[in-house]
Design a protein around this nucleic acid. Structure first.
Lengths: 156, 156
DNA sequence: GATTCCACTGGGCAACCTGTTCAGCAATAC
DNA sequence: GTATTGCTGAACAGGTTGCCCAGTGGAATC
């Protein structure tokens, strides 16, 4: 489950040049092709690498506004609220957090005005008691994993 | 910049079977290979598809605890705080949000105890006035983009 | 010390895919 | 009418993949 240095280098290579092939990787890393192939298989069946899905930019799709909403949920309504939020395409992510009945979700919208529509749709549901929204202005650190992979690979 | 139905189907196919090739895609979609290739090139240069990097699961790397921290920043210290947070591997993501001097960041840690170490490191910096942390218990909707892609593809 | 297990190496093979180019065709815009 | 754009279908060489195998070295086990 922990990864070693070679695993780390494989992930870094893949992150930098996702379309690289197994053969080219083996050349760059100085190991045999079969080794890279075996490591990759293991990383994937371990669940360390979940997949290689396309990373789609919501802004380029026409949804340049991002916001985080903290929701307070009425006791016992958790499951219903989850299902409701999952049915809203603009809800990109949903977490339940510590604190009684709190959820945190990431929203996108076409504009600040459109965000109002999205929020109305999100909170217009019976189990949600209160909602507070923070609009994202800047994203100094976009979602990343590389530094963590490097740290995990060092600790071997 | 907006995507049409074929673009949507290409993205969906890629999301479901990331290792699929251009040729196989063209067969499944019933269009010529060159068409798929051209669409993919356009989607990537448009920025709609940012890349195909490996999706790494922090939990499988040994960081099963996720938390969100809201930070209050002293006026004028934004840049320093950003640089500081970017240097912490456990900070996976950082946003600046509405409200004076507020930031929201996503953290991971090896355990609840380790989270204390991470938070200490994050907030142990001069420009940060106050921090409040919410630990993630469940993740009913993991980061997703497919429903939004479908919606964007329909609106053509 | 001997044995077994495991990961890695280096090689070979057929089948397949990619990048690229080309001509032809239909719909649209000027 | 004509240029433009996007799609089709085909071709080609070169590279890659998936798969197999025998050999090697180190580590754990007996």
């Amino acid at each position: 489950m922990a990864i070693d240095h070679l695993d780390g280098r494989i992930i870094l290579l893949l992150a930098r040049e996702p379309r690289i092939g197994v053969l080219e990787m083996s050349r760059r890393l100085g190991v045999a092709r079969g080794t890279v192939q075996a490591r990759l298989d293991r990383l994937q069946s371990n669940g360390v690498i979940r997949g290689f899905g396309p990373q789609v930019d919501p802004a380029a799709l026409g949804y340049p506004v991002t916001a985080f909403a903290t929701l307070q949920i009425r006791q016992g309504q958790g499951a219903d609220v989850r299902a409701h939020l999952a049915s809203v395409p603009e809800v990109l992510e949903l977490h339940t957090t510590t604190g009684s009945g709190d959820m945190l979700c990431r929203l996108v919208a076409r504009s600040n005005a459109d965000l109002q529509r999205v929020i109305d749709r999100v909170v217009g549901f019976d189990g949600i008691v209160r909602a507070s929204t923070a609009i994202v202005m800047e994203n100094p650190v976009p979602l990343r994993i590389i530094p963590l992979v490097e740290q995990a690979a060092e600790e071997t």
